[in-house]
Amino acid sequence: MHPLLLHPDCAEGPVKAVSADIETTSGGCRARFRLQGDIAAIKVPPHAASARADHLWKTTCLEIFWQPHGGKSYREFNLSPSSRWASYDFDDYRLNSRDAAVDAIAISTSRTDSELVLEASIASDLPVPADIALTAIVEDAEGTIQYWALAFADGKPDFHNTTCRMITLENRL
């Protein structure tokens, strides 16, 4: 698991650590996110039927940014602990956002008082080699948002910035 960093402008909150990992599969990828801390003190969307939904990033949400190595276009996946998901394609930095083609996304979440784990299996055409960002948005009970990523560029949190893409996946499993 790769440790994610809390953005330096964010106050500490109930979640004390976030880690994530990703691997390619024959038909897409599989990812796992782990949040550790006082899980009861964060907003976790209630379970819902798995379906595409917009604006998941407005509360606790885990994300993957997938960019073909050397390319400008990229795909963003939003994964909610509710099992809702979204996927968007961009031609370049935040340019021409549109729904991305996805065959299926299966999300499972387990939760204790001190840990929330989200696992996602994504069936989609994902080119390799690829540069990957794993990110987390965590909202606490008072509505304060924390931003977590492998790395951040200077300035306010921006997961679309290529600085966040610290993992290179080379091969299909």
Rank of each mutant, 00 (worst) to 15 (best):
A100Q: 06
A136Q: 05
L79S: 07
T135Q: 08
D92Q: 11
D125A: 15
A48M: 13
L126W: 09
I42D: 09
L5T: 12
A48P: 00
A53M: 08
R98G: 03
E142C: 11
K16I: 10
F77A: 00
S82D: 05
A104Y: 09
I137T: 13
G71I: 03
E63M: 10
R75N: 06
R75Q: 11
R98P: 01
V128Q: 09
D113S: 13
R75M: 13
A101H: 11
D9H: 09
E76G: 01
E63S: 04
A120R: 12
L6I: 10
T109Q: 06
P127H: 05
V18S: 13
A31W: 00
I137W: 05
I122L: 04
A17V: 02
S114G: 13
E76N: 09
L79M: 03
D91K: 07
A48L: 13
T112E: 02
W57T: 01
T112A: 02
H7V: 01
P14D: 04
L118R: 06
P46V: 09
P129S: 10
T25Q: 01
E76C: 02
N96M: 01
V128S: 13
E139P: 01
R94P: 00
V44M: 10
L35S: 14
G71P: 01
G27V: 15
S121C: 07
R34Y: 01
D103Q: 13
S110V: 06
I132D: 04
W85Q: 01
D38S: 13
A48V: 05
V44L: 14
D103L: 03
L118F: 08
D113Q: 14
I137N: 08
S121G: 14
L134S: 09
S73L: 00
F77G: 00
E63A: 11
A133R: 02
S124A: 15
V18H: 15
V102R: 03
T109Y: 05
A136P: 00
S124N: 07
V138E: 09
R98Y: 00
V138M: 07
D92T: 09
W66V: 06
A49M: 08
A86N: 15
A48E: 14
T25S: 11
L116W: 14
D91Y: 04
H47T: 05
R52V: 11
A51T: 10
I42V: 12
A49C: 03
A51F: 05
W57G: 02
E12F: 07
D91S: 07
N78W: 07
E76K: 08
I107D: 02
G70Y: 05
S87E: 02
F65Q: 03
L134G: 09
L35A: 15
A86E: 11
K16N: 04
E23I: 10
V128R: 11
T60V: 03
I107L: 15
P127I: 02
G70Q: 06
N78T: 00
G27I: 14
S97N: 15
I107F: 12
V15N: 06
I122M: 03
Y88V: 07
